[in-house]
């Protein structure tokens, strides 16, 4: 069983939840930009949450399934179609052998995740299958997917096989079949306000910069990628210039070089940095920023550490509930 890349589109890579444990050697964590969508995509096909999936960026990607396969698509709505018919998101989908799935444009968000039951049978590099393009490690041959790539699939579990069988019987004349329910997570990927904690050096910024950071809108510039988004808007100055010793940064750290334009560090961020950190995006809102694209405007809303932790807990509970509901077959596959 395999997936064949018919067209890679703008950028398609294999990602999982990232490469943890090696930051002390400078090895970048990487992984899915929108890890919430990746986890749910896996849950919907019966995989472990951290299994690798294809991260499709913006548009132009076409994939062919070389056998009957159970898949799911989550994240941004990049207008996925099969044989000209729109394919629904956030639910398990059965696709027939030789079906081609194409992403034809950004309707909402900019990254979609395609999970397949059984995951991808590719080697782990430092405990992860995620592709780190700059370091040429992980994923499929350490690079973005290319035309003609054949990515082998792993073995489906019995749960996946069961769903597959039920959906297969619903095919009728089409080459794919799905269910009429979905997990209601699309609301997390279509927002423009991102909740942020004050950063480590927040107090070292001028009073006007502190105010503008939470009041003004910032635009995501074209110089943005999986490593980070460069923003334009108010120029954020320090009370006094200073040079920091480099130390760890995290997913969602917002640093400000001396030109005053903030940079949001994301999945492929460096492990350490030395520009002053004005803010830290709450983990619960990382999917929101990850689904924004160049040209989009973002506003930062201040929250406390306590609130950020509460949001984290609620999100985890919600994912667990969905997982349990699926396993208990609370949803009908008939």
């Amino acid at each position: 069983m395999s997936v064949q890349i018919i067209r890679p589109g703008l950028l398609a890579t294999i990602q999982d939840l990232g490469r943890y444990g090696f930051q002390q050697y400078g090895v970048v964590v990487g992984g899915a930009m929108d890890s919430l969508s990746l986890r749910l995509a896996n849950v919907l096909v019966g995989n472990e949450e951290g299994e690798a999936a294809i991260e499709v960026t913006m548009m132009g990607t076409s994939l062919q399934f070389n056998e009957d396969t159970l898949i799911s698509i989550t994240g941004g709505d990049l207008n996925p179609v099969i044989d000209g018919n729109p394919v629904p998101l956030w639910r398990p989908i059965f696709v027939q052998k030789n079906t081609v799935l194409s992403f034809t444009g950004c309707k909402v968000g900019c990254r979609a995740y395609v999970a397949v039951a059984g995951g991808f049978s590719i080697p782990n590099v430092m405990n992860s299958k995620s592709t780190y393009i700059r370091g040429e490690i992980g994923g499929f041959k350490g690079r973005a997917l290319q035309e003609g790539d054949l990515i082998p699939l792993g073995e489906e579990n019995s749960f996946s096989r069961k769903i597959k069988k039920v959906l297969q019987s619903k095919l009728e004349q089409r080459s794919f079949a799905s269910v009429d329910w979905y997990v209601p997570f699309e609301r997390y990927v279509n927002k423009s306000v991102v909740r942020v904690l004050k950063g480590t050096e927040f107090e070292k910024f001028s009073e006007s910069a502190q105010k503008q950071f939470f009041e003004q809108e910032f635009q995501i510039t074209p110089q943005s990628d999986r490593m980070g988004y460069r923003l334009s808007g108010a120029s954020l100055g320090l009370k006094q210039p200073f040079e920091l010793l480099s130390e760890a940064v995290a997913n969602g750290t917002i640093q400000v070089p001396s030109d005053g334009n903030p940079i949001v560090l994301l999945a492929d961020r460096q492990t350490t940095g030395g520009y002053p950190r004005i803010g830290q995006i709450a983990a619960a809102d990382l999917p929101v920023i990850a689904q924004m694209k160049p040209g989009d405007c973002v506003r930062f809303q201040e929250i406390s550490l306590y609130e950020a932790e509460q949001l984290y807990m609620e999100r985890e509970k919600e994912i667990k509930q969905i997982r349990t509901a699926l396993l208990l077959k609370k949803w009908s596959f008939e």
Binding site: G26, R134, S246, A248, Q270, T271, T272
Partner: peptide, 11 residues
Amino acid sequence: YMIGFAPGFPY
């Protein structure tokens, strides 16, 4: 003192 930033980057 440390390896950080990018894979193998010596500080």
